[in-house]
Simulated assay, not measured.
Amino acid sequence: MNQKWFPYTVASCAAVIVFLGLSHINLLFNGIKILGKYFSPVITGLILAYVIHPLVAFFERTILSKIKKEGIKRSLAILLSFLVILLFIAVLMLALIPQLVDSVSTFISNLNGYASSLEELLNKFSASASHYNINLSGITSRINTFLSQFTQKLPTALSQIINVSAGIGQGFFNFILGSILAIYFLSGQDKLLAGTTRLLKLYIKSPTYEKMGDFWNTSNDILKRYIAGDILDGLIVGIVNWIFMIITGMSYSVLISLFVGVTNLAPTFGPIVGAIFGSFILVLVNPMHALIFLIFTIVLQTIDGYIIKPKLFGDTLGVSAVWILVTLVVGGRMFGVAGIMLAIPFAAIFNFSYQEWIQKKEAQVASKNESSKED
């Protein structure tokens, strides 16, 4: 090992292994996806347990605080948490599903009329523009072709959506299994944490273990605050959008507002997708409403970005726009929708880890400079 050739050989072998790993990284991701299919109920259960745990802890601290037996307290807290979530989902479905079904059926039945009206409007606009020597015939013909193809392909697309019901059923079955596993994870939380703690302390030194604990607590606080704030922010944006559309008399207020609220959960690109979807539906019904909707969306997203979100998140997620964009692209490519949804909290975790590391390095350099000056 003391020979000169040995470290060069080890470094060369390590470089070859890294090169092979990077060149076959697609195989690694495919393997992760295959494992994810097998372990999807377990992963779903862990995620549900993590999301529901704050509600369980809230019930344990407040309503059930006088119960002395921890097992009974935890079981009742889990039961109350699931009942509250199921009640919320039931109320939401009863309130929204009838209106959504009515909106979708009305939109599909009137689609041909909407398309023809928009074509007439575009032709009139092109004719009036020709008086000023502006040729818009190419643009209007392309839009008309798109509308005719859209109206023809929509029924086929709906039939294809119906054909994937088996996949939806399988996903629902995995969700039910995940919910059952979440109940077991929550009820056995203390034992799981105690076993994990004992295992980690056997192989990790105490200072390193304490640093890992501090890192997890900070990351946990960022994730929980982001998830709760993002859901509340999407709810606020959806309700405000629905109230505005009701006041202005716009069509399909429930359908568009629900889509805007859901897409608002995804950072950066979500509001753009919601605005495009709402404008596309409204421009078929009333182009003026589409223009008003776009203006209102810009105003609402400006207020949301500069007032609502800073109030909800505070300074916990103070991450630069560059890092957010990078994590959005990389997270979306690697993990799909989940990577996009969790891009900002992971960027925040990376940001605070980097700041902590660089502060320690600066402190070490400063102490070395002071010691060298004394010498």
Score class of each variant (00 low, 15 high):
L87M: 05
M93H: 03
A95N: 06
A95R: 05
L96F: 07
P98K: 08
P98N: 09
V101K: 04
V101C: 00
S103K: 07
N112Y: 08
Y114M: 13
S117M: 07
L118C: 12
E120G: 07
L122P: 05
K124L: 14
A127Q: 03
A129Q: 04
H131R: 01
Y132P: 00
I139V: 15
T140H: 03
N144S: 15
T145W: 04
L147S: 05
L147H: 04
Q149I: 10
T151H: 02
P155H: 10
T156G: 12
L158E: 01
S159P: 00
Q160M: 04
I161L: 14
A166P: 01
I168R: 06
Q170I: 03
F175I: 12
L177I: 12
G178M: 09
I180H: 02
L181P: 01
L181Q: 01
A182C: 13
I183K: 04
Y184E: 06
F185S: 07
Q189N: 15
K191T: 14
K191Y: 12
L193D: 12
A194T: 15
T196K: 10
L199G: 03
L202Y: 12
T208A: 07
T208F: 02
D214Y: 01
F215M: 12
N217H: 13
N217L: 14
T218D: 11
T218C: 03
N220D: 12
D221C: 08
